[in-house]
Design a protein around this nucleic acid. Structure first.
Lengths: 335, 335
DNA sequence: TTGAAAGCGCTAACAC
DNA sequence: GTGTTAGCGCTTTCAA
C-alpha cells in the first residue's frame, strides 16, 4: 500500500534544514533584516526560491499584530453606481493600509445571507450594501466593526451611511412642478421593493407627492430590475397603463436611461411628451442623448465615509455614527 | 508608574476562563460542533458575545489549511472596462470559494510597484493588469500563481490572458476602408505608451496600416489619458494637427467617446466628416449618440480565464498558459 | 460531553 | 552573525 501523502507546504524549517542554518536565520533572510551575513542571506534566498518556499500569511499575521482586512459588500460591479463607491472605499482603505475584499450579492436575499456568512470569518471589518434583515443582523452580531450603506432608514444601534432620497425627491418635484408637470410616475427598484426593507423609495415618493398636492395613481408606479433593460421594460408597462403621465422619476440613472430610451423608441419626444429624472448622478447620464437630469450624490464620498466610520469603530472611538449624503439636482436636457 | 497595557484582544482562553470550561469546549460552541451540551453552548455563546470575542482569522487559517485569497490588480474601477473584468473574476473566484482582494494602480508605475510589493505578502495568487516590468517581476518572482492580463505580447515564462488587438485592428481597417476611408488616425493610451511596455497599440496600428497600403503620418497619432476627457483633449489636438483625417481609431471606448463628442461639439458630422471606432465594447457605447462602432471583447470571459489559469497553477496542473481573447467588430452609427 | 496535549508556521527577544 | 526559547490563538487528535 503506497500512501500518497499530499504535498505538504514548504515551511521555513524545510528551508532551514536544506540550508543548514536555523529557521531564525532564514526568517532574517526572507525579511531583509540587517543582522545577517550577506553571503548567507543570498544562499538562503536562492535555496528558498528553488524550493518554492512562500511564507504563510497566517503564521505571519498571527505573530505580528498586522493588517486590517475590510470586507466591502456591494450588489453588482456592473452597475456604474458601485464602482464609484468602491473607488472611495479603496482610497480611504489604502490611506490606512487596509486590504479590501470585495463581495457581490446581486441584491438577492439568499446571496446576501451567504455573503454575510462568509464575510464574518474572513475580514476584520465590513462596510456593506445589504437589504436583508437577517444578513444585516448576521454581520452586526458578529461584533466586528460594521457600517451599513445606502438604506433609507437607520436600523437602531447600527453605524450607517445613508442617502437622503426624501429631500432629493422634493428637489425633483420643485423642478418638475415648476416646469408644469402634474402627473408624475415613479419607477422603483424591484429588488429593494421586495426585500422587505422598510422605507422603499416609492413610499417617500408618494409622501412627497402629497406634500406637493400632486395626484398619485397606483398604476403610476412601476417596479424595474436594476438595469437599463429593466428600466425599458418598466417604461413599456407604464406606457400601457399610464400614458397620461408627463414625467417619470426613477430609482436610479440606469433605470431612468432605459426608460427614457424606450420612450424615445416608442416615438415620444423627451422632454416634450415625457420628462425623465434619474437618481445617482452617474457620468453616464451626461453622455446619453438627451443628457439626463438627475439627483446627483457624491458616491465616492459615500465610500470614504463608510470606511471612516469603520475606522472609528476599530479605534473604539465614538459610538455608532450616521452620515447622510445629500443629493444635488443636476438639470439637463431630459426635463 | 502606571503601565497602560494596550487592550489585548479577547482570546478563546479568556472566554474559557470566564465560562469555566476548557477552550476546546469554547471552540466547539463557536464552531457549532455537535458534541456539546446545548445548554453549555448557549452559555458560552452568550458570554463570548458579551466579551466581544472574535476568533482570530490568522490562528484559524493556520490550523485549518483553508481559504485561498486571490489578489486582483486593475488600473481603475472607474473605467467601465474593469468592472466587467472584475465581474468575471468574482464569478470564477466565487465558484472556487476564493476571496478576492482588489488593488488599483491608476496605471502609474510607482503605484504598480507599491501594489506589487503589497500583494505578494497578502494573497495566495494574483491576476493582474500590470505594465511595469519591475512590478511584474516582483509578483512573478514571489513564486505565487500569477496571471498577467491585457498585455499585447507575452513575457516569457508567464501565464497570460491577452487581447488580440492586432487582429482587431485589421477588422477595423477592413470596415473603414470598405467605407472609403484612407486617412485614419489613432488615439492611443498615454500611460501604456509611456510605460515602456513593448507592443503599444499604435505600433500594431502602424504595421496594419502598412499591410492595407494606407498612408500613416506621425501627427495622425495622439496620446490620451484614459478617460472621456482625455479623448476629447486628444481630439482637440488632432483637429489642429491633422484636420485631413476622416476616421479615428481609439485605444478604447472611453477615449473614443470623448473624441467623438469633441468632434461633434466642434461642428463635425459623425460619421459624415469623421468616423470613430472604439475598442472594448462597453455597454456605454450603445447608449451614446451616435452609438459607437467598436471592437468588442468578452471582458467577463477575460476575468474568468485569468482565474482559471491561476487555479491551474495552484493545482500544479499544466504549465504556463496563454489565453488570447479575440475582438468582434460591432458596427454602429459612428462609422 | 468534556479536557489535555500537541502542534499549525512564523517572528521577537534574548542568548551565544 | 547566528541559534535558542517562547509564544501568537486556534483546532485536532486522543484520552477521560
Amino acid at each position: 500500500m503506497s500512501t500518497t501523502n499530499k504535498p505538504r507546504r514548504v515551511t521555513i524549517d524545510d528551508v532551514a534544514r536544506s540550508t543548514g542554518v536555523s529557521r531564525q536565520t532564514v526568517s532574517r533572510a526572507i525579511n531583509d533584516k540587517p543582522e545577517i551575513d550577506p553571503a548567507t542571506r543570498q544562499r538562503i534566498l536562492t535555496v528558498a526560491q528553488e524550493m518554492g518556499y512562500r511564507p504563510s500569511r497566517f503564521a505571519r499575521g498571527m505573530v505580528r499584530q498586522s493588517t486590517t482586512t475590510l470586507g466591502l459588500v456591494i450588489a453588482d460591479v456592473l452597475n456604474p453606481f458601485f464602482p464609484e463607491v468602491v473607488a472611495g472605499v479603496l482610497e480611504a482603505a489604502d490611506a490606512r493600509g487596509w486590504q479590501v475584499v470585495i463581495y457581490t450579492t446581486a441584491s438577492e436575499l439568499s446571496r446576501e445571507q451567504k455573503v454575510a456568512e462568509t464575510v464574518v470569518d474572513h475580514v476584520d471589518a465590513c462596510v456593506a450594501f445589504l437589504l436583508d434583515a437577517a444578513a444585516i443582523a448576521r454581520v452586526a452580531d458578529s461584533g466586528m466593526p460594521f457600517v451599513l450603506m445606502g438604506n433609507e432608514d437607520r436600523p437602531v444601534e447600527l453605524s450607517t451611511v445613508r442617502i437622503d432620497f426624501a429631500s432629493g425627491i422634493r428637489q425633483a418635484f420643485d423642478h418638475l412642478v415648476s416646469r408644469g408637470h402634474r402627473r408624475i410616475a415613479m419607477i422603483d427598484d424591484r429588488n429593494r421593493a421586495e426585500s422587505g426593507a422598510p422605507d422603499v423609495r416609492s413610499g417617500l415618493f408618494t409622501a412627497a407627492a402629497a406634500e406637493y398636492g400632486l395626484p398619485v395613481e397606483p398604476h403610476w408606479r412601476q417596479l424595474a430590475t436594476n438595469s437599463v433593460q429593466g428600466g425599458a421594460a418598466a417604461m413599456e408597462r407604464l406606457l400601457e397603463t399610464a400614458p397620461e403621465v408627463t414625467a417619470v422619476v426613477s430609482y436610479n440613472d440606469m433605470i431612468a436611461i432605459g426608460a427614457m430610451r424606450h420612450a424615445m423608441a416608442r416615438g415620444l419626444a423627451v422632454p416634450g411628451d415625457c420628462a425623465f429624472v434619474g437618481f445617482d448622478g452617474l457620468t453616464l447620464g451626461e453622455l446619453v442623448d438627451p443628457p439626463l437630469t438627475t439627483l446627483s450624490i457624491d458616491k465616492r464620498r459615500l465610500g470614504q465615509a463608510a470606511v471612516e466610520q469603520a475606522a472609528a469603530q476599530m479605534a473604539g472611538t465614538g459610538a455608532m455614527a450616521d452620515t447622510v449624503v445629500r443629493t444635488e439636482l443636476m438639470v439637463r436636457a431630459s426635463t
